[in-house]
Design a protein around this nucleic acid. Structure first.
Lengths: 348, 348
DNA sequence: CTGAAAGCGCTTACAG
DNA sequence: CTGAAAGCGCTTACAG
């Protein structure tokens, strides 16, 4: 085995052709499994391919055929378990389709998002799945993506956008969670976490507000505590939520990270979710079922959404002129211990 | 704005050249910022590039120049927070280097790993970062990766491998954790979770065994409980750990996922980590500091390791004939509440 | 059944 | 300062 690696020139179709005394066209036909090549030739060529350790140059083939074998995914941050699950789902579906995944992340910065998109686009993906950073403007996005690459927006809408969209029924999900708490006897129900700047947060809050109104319940403005949707930021805001008088007896949280943070904040005060405060989340990330107490949450199945997003963008890439599709996926409430106990009649 | 997208032919260098009545070479020189192009020509060309929404075809350029602008990363599973953090670090460093990341996952299957590697290699990455699936054989890996693409092994060694390696000082980390527990007065200390098939697990167990021996403590074989290193699998094995008589008073866990699972299993039995059983983890994923009680763990800073891995693979790609590098990163113990209380003298 | 030729979109000596 | 030409590794009509 030679001690140098890349120093050895990459072996190409032409090398195989020469060694077998056939043309490059014949080798190419063998590679693509064409039935037109004679069995003897095929066997000879295949043996030589293995012998020389030939590796197909898909970029060259894509260039010639004007095709692509990649899809790009851009998310805020992989360390968010919701996006990690989503990315894993995208990856599964792309692997099945023989496609490779290009990954980028924005860190929720629109400037970084533009740069990342520009860089990815140059690699010619068949399509692009983007969970847009907060504050993304349609025209900036159009500028960065161009007209040639199909774009699928995931999770958040962009005002005035006419791209494909895959989202979650945020309004219905928050409504389900709120109705569940109302049915357990709660009347002072807060909406906790998230930023008003995010469309998904506005929609979830909208579902909550509607359910409260339908139940004839008041929404106390001081129960609305905003925070960046991470566990730690949420834990830091728990004091603000509990300081309100009268305190809420239940909280519909923006998402699971916030709900888990709220539960941590409660625990550090010697309080228990499901006992001292009923808590619901949103997303159903793997940790939700595994927390103590287990978290009641709106199940969105991010991994399945990832597979679905991959399928949608591949379909769009195959049919560029099909009508824009907007899919809002329905949700279910997973009822667990964090909200299971009914409100005690004796509580204030 | 035209209603069709991909239907419109992609605009190319030649289109810009024609529109500006210059040659393709000149446009190419403008693109690469060559000082040799006249200011007037440059301005004209740049305006036309913007006007037509030209997007550079980096694959074509890479083909011509025999270069690459991507690096591939292959991990077990993105939904593992340790790998998600690592991937985020790789992504950061690659973005800074103007490189794009190709992502694949193996699901801990060597067959899937071979398929994923073969597919990625065809896209011609400048290098490959792989956290090998358990049971990876050197020859299969050499077969899948070939001789041309630099490979960096992360986290786990492969027997007989002579590729670059970046790992964590597993032995020292587990030794630190064990010594910490010994210093707190514990004598019956278990090693919990992981599989003997994984090199990192064997190394951590080795560090634990050495520290026990150095302290003159016995290792009770029944305290060794194996499990797949996920939160849920670990939680399911807690009963087996507690059933041993005499029960351990402390547990060095294979990693944070296992430790968090152990803490969940304790909580569901009404027991508390740091009170009824001292617990340490390994990795210091973000959840470790945020759990209740906060988890004492061996800090490996996976995000920084990701940046480091990216730098190593880019360096290798630039210097294929440099000697093989094996980096074992030192670790630190982050002491938190899950192990903070000294063993009570009155406990059995 | 196989080969010669053109071309995908770019870059880069080389000549002027 | 700019252009004509060759070539990166592949595919695909077309002719034989």
């Amino acid at each position: 085995m030679s001690s140098s690696r890349s120093a050895t020139r990459r072996v190409t179709l032409a090398d195989i052709a020469t060694a077998c005394a056939v043309s490059r066209a014949t080798v190419s036909l063998v590679l693509s499994g064409s039935p037109v090549v004679g069995a003897a030739t095929r066997t000879r060529v295949e043996a030589e391919i293995r012998r020389q350790g030939y590796v197909y140059n898909r970029a060259a083939a894509n260039l010639r055929r004007n095709t692509s074998s990649s899809v790009a995914l851009v998310v805020n941050d992989l360390s968010n378990p919701f996006f990690a699950e989503f990315a894993a789902g995208v990856d599964e579906a792309l692997a099945d389709a023989g496609c490779v995944m290009l990954l980028g992340s924005t860190g929720e910065s629109v400037a970084r998002q533009s740069a990342v998109l520009a860089s990815l686009i140059e690699h010619g993906p068949a399509g692009l799945i983007l969970s847009p950073a907060e504050g993304t403007a349609r025209d900036d996005l159009r500028q960065a993506v161009g007209l040639h690459t199909p774009l699928l927006l995931f999770n958040r809408q962009v005002d005035g956008a006419d791209w494909d969209f895959l989202g979650t029924d945020n309004v219905a999900g928050a409504r389900l969670a709120t109705e569940h708490l109302v049915a357990r006897g709660h009347r002072r129900i807060a909406f906790f976490g998230g930023h008003a700047g995010s469309s998904s947060c506005r929609q979830r809050r909208d579902g909550y507000t509607r359910a409260m109104a339908a139940a004839g319940l008041a929404v106390e403005p001081r129960w609305r505590v905003e925070c960046t949707p991470t566990r730690l930021q949420a834990a830091a805001q728990v004091g603000a939520l509990l300081a309100v008088d009268p305190a809420p007896t239940a909280a519909v949280c923006y998402n699971d990270a916030v709900a888990l943070g709220l539960m941590l904040g409660l625990a550090s005060r010697g309080l228990r979710a499901g006992h001292d405060l009923a808590v619901t989340g949103f997303d159903d990330i793997p940790e939700a079922a595994a927390s103590v107490p287990a978290l009641t949450t709106v199940a969105t199945d991010p991994r399945a959404r990832g597979r679905q997003a991959a399928a949608m963008v591949l379909a769009r890439s195959a049919a560029p002129d099909a009508p824009v599709s907007r899919v809002v996926h329905p949700v279910q409430l997973a009822v667990r211990d964090s909200s299971a106990a009914p409100l005690l009649a004796t509580r204030p």
